[in-house]
């Protein structure tokens, strides 16, 4: 069987070619581009060596962006992975399993909606004069916490991150739910005989047994956090000031707004390095690197 090997290569060609030309080649091109000063509309390209890379280290906005990406990652891990895990555990509990379908559907709903919808919607909702968030806070007696959410550099990035959590917790929760459904029920029953129920069994059975999935979700959220673009671009475009810039939004801005395609490419290279380091850490932690994919 499967011997006419030369012809068999044809099966691989379309996919391989696409990946080679549109995934790998652009990456090489990005490195190459980063050594030049050029913009999108002018034919002039000047070779400037490592100047773009040197600038990365003196540019304060790069610092802001990296900080914001890291904040995004940390908060996302805490809320999406943490809260997602807790929610999943609660819904898996016998007491609530009747309602699981209902809550799962609702919590997951924002995941399928485009962020363009969610971002614009929350931008309106977060506006202090015409939105609904501040009136809601007043309503529940937390009026003192009302803020100009997207209009202050101290709160803008957090507000964006909040909306991102709002959208994605349901997704992570779902992944945990599936992992938990694979835990045999007799584990819990045996634990119950030993007197471990509820919170105790959560810590002693659930958490250890969804370790793999925890790793998967952490990887997803962290890598996602360093790739953030839509959320910031749609809600604040990096403002006020430069306070909510992330690596990708800043790359976009330098490339397509301030005519520095070369510098933007250098930022892309920086991103590549950051993501590479994260991936290597992930492989290291996972041991074999085969932790992805539960199915």
């Amino acid at each position: 069987m499967y011997k006419s090997q030369k012809r068999a290569l044809l099966y691989a060609v379309p996919g391989m070619a696409l990946v080679l030309i549109f995934v790998y080649y652009p990456l090489i091109l990005t490195f190459y581009n980063a050594f030049y000063r050029w913009n999108a509309f002018s034919p002039v390209r000047t070779f400037i060596g490592f100047e773009n890379f040197q600038r990365l280290f003196s540019d304060p906005v790069i610092g802001i962006a990296l900080t914001n990406n890291t904040l995004y990652a940390v908060i996302s891990v805490i809320f999406q992975c943490g809260l997602g895990l807790v929610l999943a555990a609660v819904l898996e509990n016998k007491m609530f399993s009747k309602f699981q379908g209902f809550f799962r559907t609702i919590y997951f709903m924002p995941v399928v909606v485009s962020f363009a919808v969610i971002g614009i919607l929350w931008q309106l909702a977060l506006h202090p004069a015409s939105g609904i968030v501040n009136p809601f806070l007043h309503l529940i007696g937390l009026g003192a916490f009302a803020q100009d959410w997207l209009g202050q550099s101290t709160t803008a990035i957090y507000s964006i991150i909040f909306v991102s959590q709002w959208q994605n917790i349901g997704y992570i929760m779902l992944l945990f739910l599936v992992a938990m459904q694979k835990i045999p029920t007799d584990y819990y029953e045996a634990a119950a005989i030993d007197g471990a129920t509820g919170i105790k069994s959560f810590f002693h059975i659930t958490i250890p047994l969804v370790k793999e999935m925890t790793l998967v979700t952490v990887v997803i959220t962290v890598i996602g956090a360093y790739r953030v673009f839509d959320e910031v671009f749609i809600m604040t475009e990096g403002g006020p000031g430069m306070s909510s810039q992330t690596l990708v939004t800043y790359m976009y801005r330098t490339g397509f707004r301030t005519d520095e395609m070369g510098y933007a490419s250098a930022i892309a290279v920086l991103m590549f390095v950051v993501l590479l380091i994260l991936t290597l850490i992930q492989i290291r932690v996972a041991g074999t690197g085969r932790s992805k994919g539960e199915g």
Binding site: L126, H127, P128, A129, S130, D148, W149, L150, G151, Q152, G239, P240
Partner: peptide, 12 residues
């Protein structure tokens, strides 16, 4: 000025 200038759009 009205409050919240940085989150209010010109048209708002």
């Amino acid at each position: 000025f009205n409050p919240y200038v940085n989150s209010t759009t010109h048209s708002m």
